[in-house]
Simulated scan of single mutants.
Amino acid sequence: MNRIFAADGKSVSLALDGFGFSEKTAGVDAAARKVPEMVEHGLDNVLVTYGQARNFAQYFTGAGLTLRVDTTTAVYDGSVPDNMPAFDILDAVKLGADGVVIMNFPGAHNERATNEFAARLTRQSAEWNVPFMCEALPFGYAVTTPESADPEKIATAARFSEELGADIIKTRFSGTDRDRLIVENCTVPVLALGGPKSDHETYFGFVAHVMACGAKGVAVGRNVTQDPKPLAMVSALGALVHEDATAAQAMALYTQIDD
């Protein structure tokens, strides 16, 4: 856990694992090669696929490494209609990973299968002392209905995944004050996933919001990998997560840094 989170118990995590479930992977490889520089700018942890952990290992030594051990069953369908177990804790141990992550879909058609995989990982996690991060997404991967983004539903999904044994919850936030319910309903650290694809000031405002709601950090993908200044973005996120910066302060920092 001390590799995934900084000494203050918070984490700026970079999601580089899109190759496992999406075609939208522009910028991922370039960002992976910049991880050593990102660590100097405040990056704490990376989420990666098995192939990345093996083939990009030289870039990840300075950061915590969380291995995605599930994968989509339909890589050309961006909605990720289903996922499947691909690897497990033993694979993570062999690769020297600091933790594992999967998606869990409470309320979805495949809820039973994702629950069973989560429970198996929990048992292995306890045996090998490897932290288990669960990406709790109510009703499925995509936000398709108002319920999918309802903080009460998200809070239930998050706590349900914690009760299956997750050491860390990664989940979506709605951007409303009711997001406090998500964090208050958990007793383990909660990371906010992604966030809106928007202008920088709006995005920094969202990150400041989730931190004010009690999140222990963020797990960000395209908002870093597809940003024209990824190092500046990581610096701004580091200030928001670790220094309680405001959105305006983060924006000023982003503007000052040239990649």
Score class of each variant (00 low, 15 high):
L47W: 14
F21H: 13
F56D: 09
T61A: 13
G42D: 07
D44V: 08
E40A: 15
A15K: 12
D17I: 05
L14E: 06
G18I: 05
D17M: 05
K34D: 07
A31F: 07
P36M: 00
G42Q: 10
L67D: 03
V48W: 00
F60V: 00
A30D: 12
F21T: 06
T25P: 04
G64I: 08
D8Q: 03
A31Q: 05
H41Q: 02
D44T: 13
D29Y: 15
D44W: 15
F56V: 03
F56L: 14
E23P: 15
V28I: 15
Y59P: 01
R33P: 09
D8Y: 13
A15P: 10
R68F: 00
E40T: 08
L14I: 07
G51I: 07
T25L: 01
R54D: 08
T66G: 11
V28H: 04
G27H: 00
A15C: 14
G62L: 13
G9H: 08
G9R: 02
A32L: 07
L65P: 08
A63F: 12
V48F: 01
N45C: 15
G27N: 04
A30L: 08
A26P: 02
E23T: 12
G42L: 11
G51A: 14
L14M: 11
A7P: 04
Y50S: 05
A15D: 09
L67C: 04
K24T: 07
A6D: 09
F60H: 02
F60G: 02
T25D: 00
M38W: 10
S11I: 06
A53E: 07
L65I: 10
V48D: 01
G42M: 12
A57T: 06
Y59L: 01
A7C: 07
F56W: 12
F60Y: 13
V35E: 08
D44G: 05
T66A: 10
D70K: 00
Y50K: 03
A30R: 13
T25V: 09
V69W: 00
S13R: 12
M38L: 05
D8V: 03
V12M: 09
E37H: 13
T61R: 06
Y59F: 15
R68S: 13
